[in-house]
Design a protein around this nucleic acid. Structure first.
Length: 830
RNA sequence: GCGGGCGUGGCGGAGCCGGCAGACGCGCGGGACUUAGGAUCCCGUGGGCAAAGGCCCGUGUGGGUUCAAAUCCCACCGCCCGCACCA
């Protein structure tokens, strides 16, 4: 390679210059339109590989593009720095989680800078810093004061081997991710966020998110899982109480031949008490509890197990007494933990009824009729007409739903109800490396929130990390023991920390005023910058992080603290970078390290390769060949500039259209501006934008000749002036070098984006295609503005065309000016 | 099972508001320059037939709409992702 540009060396040079010039500092400026461009911030795990780089590279191109287009761009970076791996490092290597974390942040920071990402480093944040988690605690209190937190007993995942609590994500196939010991359930007092209070709005507002991928919205809608139905009450005379069930099929209540309770349902033990089968029931409950910890995979295929409780309740529609069962296919967490068994019209109830010989009664006949309880082999859950349903016989079942609910409501046993799959958000974690929950327990005053002015509740430095089954903070007496903020008496601190998803649910707000000390963010800055215009990150956060962030934004919006109810206007979910067909990971040993790539080819090459290989949403396979191809392209670009130092100072900016070749080059240049602009701005098709630049470079080589010095200097100057700027967001280093060499003023990254001349974009001549009976038979050149008649005349006159018309006559001619003439024929009339 | 998405050369991928299929890159073949070149520049490259002009076939499979279908519609096959006893 003879090129005089050495990326490994020159990129370092430019990094220093840019730092001197403070190129990416962002200030509020109400006179300019703002553009908030954000990539999901990383967890500082210690490794940075080319798979990570893609996300930030995509975001960086968008940020740089908008900056050149006159937007005031906010493009910050930070670290999602709390989390369990840091604590494990403490346990395994005796290194303090803080030290481990800050070391890793140091590495990430190096690579972000080295890759040329245009972050405003003045705004860097880390969620584990007290100046940040102080405001995470503030958010907890903010929700608390708005009635959106509560404390309740809840089961947690518990590894008996490690004697510690595990996060849901750390339970792999029912076992501990580290020692594979089967996880058991354990009841603990936990803090919850009442996200279900926002379920409807989280669902409805998905409609506002035009700029989100459809599949993410669908995933969120499914996750929220809204179901409309009714709550029905079944009288239990024996207890003098009702059992309430939730159903979406009120229309089938006449077919309810039994009732089923979840094993954890409180009435199960009461109903069994004193009955002959009591001990078997208790055994059943215990057995079911063990199963709950098992992997859910295939749960639907597992045979349903149940037990008759020797009790009855009254079907409110028919007045019949029906048996009450307990069964493991009913979930306590959903609805009321009790369901009515309608075997004819619910597959699960059907399987259960057949297994235990319970009666089946058809109450909805499909359009053709003929459904018979004795012979049916599966439940019928389609539409039909109600039968065996007293006053409702003959009613279409869909219509019957509302009528049955109203009928039952008049009689006092039904009411309309809505259920969600979404559960409240459990935020307590029995871990050290997280934001302490700012709560104090006082014997006299009860649960007392820490007053805002006493924040942050600092994490103690010294604690015992060895796993013992409670929060490590419980081992630090100087942390636990405090005084009650209300009465001043001795009190105890909450020893759990917050789920790290709490930290990441509001970080995009902190960036608008990252050093603000009077609140989580300055309101004026929030109203200027929010919402995020462009958010880029992995699909793996399609539900959790994005749903939690939407929740936080809505709560703050309701308080008037942020301008819009949704946090992220446009969302781009980038695909993974694979190596040998699999996601890069240390354990798999297929990680592409950035250091050798960047040293050999430069960060520009790494960036452009990841952009060029496929559209951003798609996964790409790392290819050393592909990388070399991109490197060749960039060096090819460089060589165009290499032979023309100072060019921009020597020739006029606006070339006269000299000869045909010059005009063709100018057309290419302006067409490329249009293509790249639209691909980046409207379609996120960064791969085709790069392809268009390659095409342009190929065209320029043809124009300037083998020694690269030919062509009209003014035309070449215009072309290079455009090329360098179009390429700048993709390859910031080499374009800066070219810009200086060619004699540009200032930094290329402070230049405005090229504008194209629409008059130049349109070709003067076009190739018109002539089809005869659907096949291309001829093509000819014509002026772009040639009329329909002119084109038809020319097409029909062409000898090639006449040949195909021989012995046939023209049936029809369809002409699209500027494109084609299509001739349909039929056999000539004799 | 339910929901969403995708099937285009040897490979990654363009084109999909119907209008020249295969942009751009990789790989491969050829040429130029050169002591040399695994550098660089240029040309070619879906398959078949042909000396050539050209002809035929081609976007998972089968059908349909149309002057015209990779693109729209229907059925099927295959792959990927999400959810999965949610009443």
């Amino acid at each position: 390679m003879t090129a005089s540009y050495e990326p490994g060396r020159r990129e370092l040079y430019w990094l220093d210059r840019w730092q001197e010039w403070d190129l990416y500092r962002t200030e509020q400026d109400p006179t300019r339109p703002k553009y908030y461009c954000l990539e999901m911030f990383p967890y500082p795990s210690g490794d940075f590989h080319m798979g990570h780089a893609r996300n930030y590279t995509i975001g960086d191109v968008l940020a740089r593009f908008h900056r050149m287009n006159g937007y005031n761009v906010l493009h910050p970076m930070g670290y999602d720095a709390f989390g369990l791996p840091a604590e494990n490092a403490a346990i395994l290597r005796g290194m303090h989680p803080a030290r481990w974390t800050w070391q890793n942040i140091e590495k990430l920071r190096y690579w972000f800078r080295r890759m040329g990402y245009s972050y405003d480093w003045e705004r860097e944040i880390a969620t584990c810093h007290p100046d940040y988690y102080r405001w995470t605690q503030w958010m907890f209190l903010f929700l608390h004061h708005r009635g959106l937190t509560y404390r309740a007993r809840a089961p947690v995942n518990w590894c008996p081997q490690c004697a510690t609590v595990l996060a849901n994500e750390q339970v792999v196939q029912g076992g501990c991710w580290r020692c594979h010991t089967p996880v058991v359930r354990k009841e603990l007092e936990q803090w919850f966020f009442r996200i279900t209070a926002y379920a409807d709005r989280l669902l409805d507002d998905l409609k506002l998110l035009d700029g989100w991928p459809e599949r993410v919205k669908v995933m969120q809608a499914n996750w929220i899982g809204r179901s409309e139905g009714a709550e029905l009450r079944f009288r239990v005379e024996e207890l003098g109480e009702d059992i309430t069930v939730f159903t979406t099929r009120q229309d089938t209540v006449f077919g309810a031949t039994f009732l089923v309770l979840a094993p954890e349902h409180p009435l199960v033990k009461r109903l069994a008490a004193g009955k002959p089968g009591e001990s078997r029931v208790l055994e059943f409950i215990a057995e079911a509890a063990r199963h709950r910890g098992e992997p859910e995979d295939g749960a639907a295929e597992r045979p349903k197990r149940g037990l008759f409780l020797e009790s009855y309740c009254r079907n409110p529609a028919t007045g019949e007494d029906i048996p009450i069962w307990v069964a493991d296919y009913v979930l306590m967490e959903y609805g009321t933990g009790a369901v009515m068994g309608v075997p004819a019209h619910d597959q699960r109830d059907f399987e259960f009824a057949r297994q235990y010989g319970l009666p089946v009664r058809v109450v909805v006949q499909p359009p053709g009729g003929g459904l018979d309880a004795d012979t049916m082999t599966a439940a019928y859950d389609g539409p039909g007409v109600m039968v065996n349903s007293g006053p409702f016989d003959g009613t279409p079942n869909e219509e019957g739903k509302a009528r049955v609910t109203a009928w039952g409501q008049e009689r006092g046993w039904a009411r309309p109800a809505v259920q969600y799959r979404l559960r409240d958000w459990l935020v307590s974690r029995q871990r050290y490396w997280g934001a302490p929950i700012p709560i104090v327990y006082c014997e006299r005053c009860g649960i007392v929130p820490v007053p805002e002015e006493q924040l942050p509740v600092l994490l103690p430095e010294v604690v015992d990390f060895s796993p013992r089954g409670m929060s490590p903070l419980a081992t630090a007496p100087e942390f636990i023991n405090t005084t009650c903020p209300t009465c001043g008496e001795p009190a105890r601190r909450e020893t759990d920390t917050m789920d790290t998803f709490v930290c990441s649910s509001w970080y995009y707000m902190r960036y608008v005023s990252p050093r603000y000390t009077a609140g989580p963010f300055q309101k004026e800055a929030a109203f200027y910058w929010l919402p995020v215009d462009q958010y880029t990150g992995g699909i793996e956060h399609a539900i959790l992080h994005l749903l939690y962030s939407r929740f936080f934004t809505k709560v703050l919006y309701d308080a008037g603290l942020v301008p819009e109810p949704e946090p992220f206007r446009r969302l781009l979910t980038q695909g993974m970078v694979l190596k040998d067909g699999a996601a890069m990971s240390k354990s798999r040993g297929n990680v592409v390290e950035p250091a050798p790539i960047v040293e050999k080819y430069g960060a520009d090459t790494a960036r452009v390769f990841e952009l060029f290989a496929a559209p951003p949403e798609k996964e790409i396979d790392w290819s050393d060949r592909g990388v070399e191809g991109v490197y060749r392209f960039l060096m090819r670009v460089w060589r165009l500039a290499e032979v023309r130092p100072g060019l921009f100072r020597q020739v006029p900016g606006h070339p006269e259209a000299a000869d045909a070749a010059a005009r063709e080059v100018r057309r290419l240049v302006h067409r490329t501006i249009k293509k790249v602009t639209e691909d980046v701005r409207d379609r996120f098709m960064l791969n085709t934008a790069v392809a268009a630049l390659m095409e342009m470079v190929n065209g320029l080589y043809a124009y300037v000749g083998e020694d690269r010095t030919g062509g009209d200097p003014a035309v070449v100057a215009e072309a290079l002036h455009v090329l360098v700027r179009l390429l700048a967001p993709f390859a910031p280093f080499i374009t800066e070098e070219m810009w200086q060499l060619l004699g540009g003023e200032g930094s290329v990254h402070r230049q405005s984006w090229p504008a194209y001349d629409p008059g130049l974009v349109a070709a003067e001549q076009v190739t018109v295609v002539v089809q005869v009976d659907g096949r291309v038979r001829h093509r000819f050149q014509a002026p772009v503005d040639a009329t329909r008649e002119e084109l038809e005349a020319e097409a029909l006159a062409a000898p090639r065309v006449r040949q195909f018309l021989d012995g046939r006559e023209v049936a029809r001619v369809v002409t699209v000016p500027g494109k084609l003439v299509s001739i349909a024929t039929r056999p000539a009339a004799s």
